[in-house]
């Protein structure tokens, strides 16, 4: 099936599952130093519909430095030629600390798009507060967070774990996903599905310091698409 222009940027659950498998495989190939993305089966009781929503994609124990790269200099002072060293030192007088993150990619049946849930810890096991997370955010993400406190990143209930996790809101995801594929050369819907989560993560991951290696984004030779039914 060709990628028709009326495609609204959303995917079905089974497509999400296929896209998850594709992401997981590509991640392993080009990011072998990182923990893998693994599929976690849903713990819902057997009598809840088994046909859908039976799991999510998980990457745990991801370590990243809290005063990371561009994250520490403020947007106003940002200019291309300058060395941001002093700003960084002022902003975060503490020594750089390593934070541990868990990321979950959950399918939202309402929005029909993936949603990122995450939580973070200090190296002593203390959970990260919003302030801690803000410190690690890249400047543009931080700006968005300040402007739209309630519609960008909030702490909400993890749909499978019943505990509050940080989440990035899904409203708008389908629009920009549609844009990402709008001038894509791939006309195979299966290829779109295969590339869907990788592309999605390349955007969403930036917010939380999760980099997607460039080679993952190179469109692979179009293999026979995963079954999307």
């Amino acid at each position: 099936m060709g990628l028709c222009s009326s495609w609204d940027g959303t995917i079905s659950y089974s497509e999400f599952f296929d896209a998850a498998r594709a992401l997981s495989e590509k991640w392993k190939l080009s990011n072998s130093a990182c923990p893998p993305w693994t599929w976690i089966c849903c713990k819902k009781p057997f009598w809840v519909s088994l046909h859908e929503e039976q799991g999510y994609l998980s990457l745990e124990n991801f370590y990243c430095c809290s005063i990371s790269k561009e994250g520490s200099y403020h947007d106003q002072s940002q200019s291309f030629g300058e060395e941001p060293v002093d700003d960084a030192a002022l902003d975060d007088p503490c020594a750089p600390e390593v934070h541990q993150y868990d990321f979950h990619i959950v399918y939202s049946a309402s929005y029909r798009v993936p949603v990122l849930f995450f939580r973070g810890y200090h190296c002593d096991g203390q959970p990260l507060t919003v302030d801690d997370i803000e410190k690690g955010l890249p400047a543009n993400a931080l700006k968005t967070l300040k402007e739209s406190k309630w519609t960008f990143m909030t702490r909400e209930e993890h749909p499978y774990l019943n505990r509050p996790w940080y989440t990035l809101h899904a409203c708008g995801t389908s629009e920009w996903m549609k844009l990402m594929f709008s001038d894509s050369s791939s006309t195979q819907h299966g290829a779109v599905v295969e590339q869907y989560l990788v592309s999605w993560l390349s955007v969403v991951g930036q917010v939380v310091g999760l980099q997607v290696p460039l080679e993952m984004l190179k469109s692979s030779n179009l293999k026979p698409p995963f079954s999307s039914d």
């Binding site: 819902k44 009781p45 809840v48 519909s49 859908e52 929503e53 049946a109 309402s110 749909p159 019943n162």
Partner: peptide, 11 residues
Amino acid sequence: NWDEISYVNRP
């Protein structure tokens, strides 16, 4: 415990 409640959100 909230884990005793299964929660389904579906259109």
